[in-house]
């Protein structure tokens, strides 16, 4: 038994909104330390899948197990406490707060306290360090600016830093690269690779296939809420189903 342990197991997950089957019978396993990419045309159910895994919506059917524990239907805060963090496709900072104060919120969570051995420590200092890690230049005082004054690139980094503050075992990134320039993406990729190197399991929802395929171990394709392909980036790229889905949606 040399294969790494399964950290997340999703079985036959279903969710409909009215008549729309946003996610239908999706199953997959995630191994510890893996980087899984999830792709699919707009409206194919990627964000819904993230919301299901992180407890923001409850599935109609199916199950989610994290480290062997059934977390189906759990509220988000309990799932986070267990070790799953997520970013939002639409960034959700606290706009009127300085960037570093945004991190004080996750740093206040029970998970952080437990990992730190029962005490919180100096939240502001930890926040500033985290922001530096995701590329907020310390000399330029970007960390002290209110979030509403930050450009999109920084807001995305802030979103990532909020997750890192929670020191999750599984990190789910919902289109972190969307709306960013090539240079900005190139700036964030090393941070993700570093997290991976530290042993974090990562799920990346992405539209930027080129960047994703370079770092993903495995890619899963959704279309109309169904899983239509899965495998290494090379095989998925060649698969007929994927070509059809992408061509079909883009014309």
């Amino acid at each position: 038994m040399n294969s790494p342990a399964v950290i997340l197991r999703v079985t036959d997950l279903c969710k409909s909104f009215g008549g729309v089957r946003a996610v239908s019978s999706v199953s997959f396993d995630l191994s510890d330390g893996e980087l899984l990419g999830i792709i699919g045309p707009n409206g194919s159910g990627k964000t819904t899948l993230v919301n299901l895994i992180t407890g923001f919506i409850k599935p109609d059917a199916g199950g989610i197990r994290f480290r062997g524990k059934d977390i189906t239907g759990w509220p988000p805060y309990r799932i986070v406490t267990l070790g799953i963090a997520r970013t939002f496709q639409m960034v959700r900072p606290f706009y009127q707060l300085p960037a570093y104060k945004n991190l004080v919120v996750p740093l206040y969570s029970p998970r952080v306290r437990r990992l730190a051995g029962g005490k919180y420590g100096d939240r502001d200092a930890v926040a500033l360090d985290l922001l530096e890690e995701v590329g907020f230049e310390r000399d330029a005082y970007v960390s002290y600016k209110v979030a509403s004054a930050l450009p999109q690139g920084y807001l995305k980094r802030l979103e990532l830093a909020k997750c890192m503050a929670l020191r999750p075992d599984l990190l789910v990134l919902d289109e972190l690269f969307s709306g960013l320039s090539l240079a900005e993406v190139a700036g964030i990729v090393p941070i993700i690779e570093k997290l991976r190197f530290q042993g974090m399991t990562i799920v990346m929802i992405e539209h930027r296939l080129k960047e994703l395929f370079r770092i993903a171990d495995r890619v899963m394709v959704l279309n109309y809420g169904e899983k239509i392909a899965e495998g290494s980036p090379e095989t998925v790229m060649e698969s007929d189903a994927v070509k059809k889905a992408y061509l079909g949606s883009e014309t």
């Binding site: 992180t54 923001f56 509220p75 988000p76 805060y77 986070v80 406490t81 963090a85 997520r86 939002f88 959700r92 900072p93 606290f94 706009y95 009127q96 707060l97 104060k101 004080v104 919120v105 996750p106 206040y108 969570s109 029970p110 998970r111 952080v112 909020k162 503050a165 929670l166």
Partner: peptide, 17 residues
């Protein structure tokens, strides 16, 4: 800060555990 955060961005507070 968290209390006020709940008011203007409850999902962000939820995702912070």
């Amino acid at each position: 800060l968290i209390v006020r955060g709940i008011n203007d961005n409850d999902r962000a507070v939820m995702s912070a555990g």
